[in-house]
C-alpha cells in the first residue's frame, strides 16, 4: 500500500504529520491497518547515531514492553539498543532496512523498522507527542541541544 507523506520542516529536518513522536527514544509511531503500529527513527534519532551499518530486531512474535529493547543498532562509532516507544507484539521487521541499513540515515521518515500489535495503545500513544505545535517546539529544542553537544554537523 503506497501512502503519501505529508511533511513539515523543523530546524531543517523533515517530519511527517499524522505520526506520534517519542521524546525519549527519537522514534516515531504510525498507526496502520488493523490497529497495528509501525515504528521508525525520526531524523535526529538516526543522524545522531552516525552512519548506521547494521540493525537487528527481536524475532517476530516477541512481546516487548515500552522502554525495553526490541533490537539493536550499530553505527560507525556507536552501538546501542533500540528502545520500544510502545508495548506490543512484534508482527514484522522491515527487511529492506535490515538489508540496507543506510536507508535509516537517508530517509528515516520513509523507512519503518518494526511493526507491532500494540497491547496498550490508548494508554501509551497518549504518552507520545502528536499535536503539531508540540512536536515542532520539542523538535526545535532537540536540534538546539544536539548542536550544543556537537552531535550534528556544523
Amino acid at each position: 500500500m503506497m501512502t503519501t507523506l505529508e511533511l513539515f520542516t523543523v530546524g531543517g529536518y523533515r517530519l511527517a504529520a499524522g505520526r506520534s513522536y517519542d521524546e525519549a527514544t527519537h522514534l516515531w509511531v504510525e498507526t496502520v491497518a488493523e490497529g497495528a503500529a509501525r515504528c521508525g527513527f525520526d531524523p535526529l534519532g538516526s543522524e545522531t547515531s552516525g552512519d548506521v551499518v547494521a540493525v537487528s530486531f527481536e524475532p517476530v512474535g516477541t512481546s516487548v514492553e515500552r522502554g525495553q529493547a526490541f533490537g539493536s543498532l550499530e553505527a560507525a562509532k556507536f552501538v546501542g539498543p533500540l528502545i520500544a516507544p510502545i508495548s506490543g507484539t512484534i508482527r514484522a521487521h522491515n527487511g529492506e532496512v535490515v538489508a540496507r541499513p543506510g536507508l535509516v540515515n537517508q530517509d528515516p521518515m520513509a523507512h519503518w523498522l518494526i511493526e507491532v500489535q500494540p497491547s496498550r495503545p490508548d494508554e501509551e500513544l497518549a504518552l507520545l507527542l502528536r499535536d503539531p505545535d508540540r512536536v515542532r517546539a520539542w523538535f526545535a529544542a532537540e536540534v538546539e541541544k544536539f548542536e550544543r553537544q556537537g552531535a550534528i554537523t556544523q
Partner: peptide
C-alpha cells in the same frame, strides 16, 4: 578519519 569527522562536525554521530 571518521572519528576526526565527528570531532570537527563534518559528520553527525557520536562515540559509543
Amino acid at each position: 578519519s571518521y572519528a576526526s569527522a565527528l570531532a570537527l562536525r563534518f559528520k553527525s554521530g557520536r562515540f559509543q
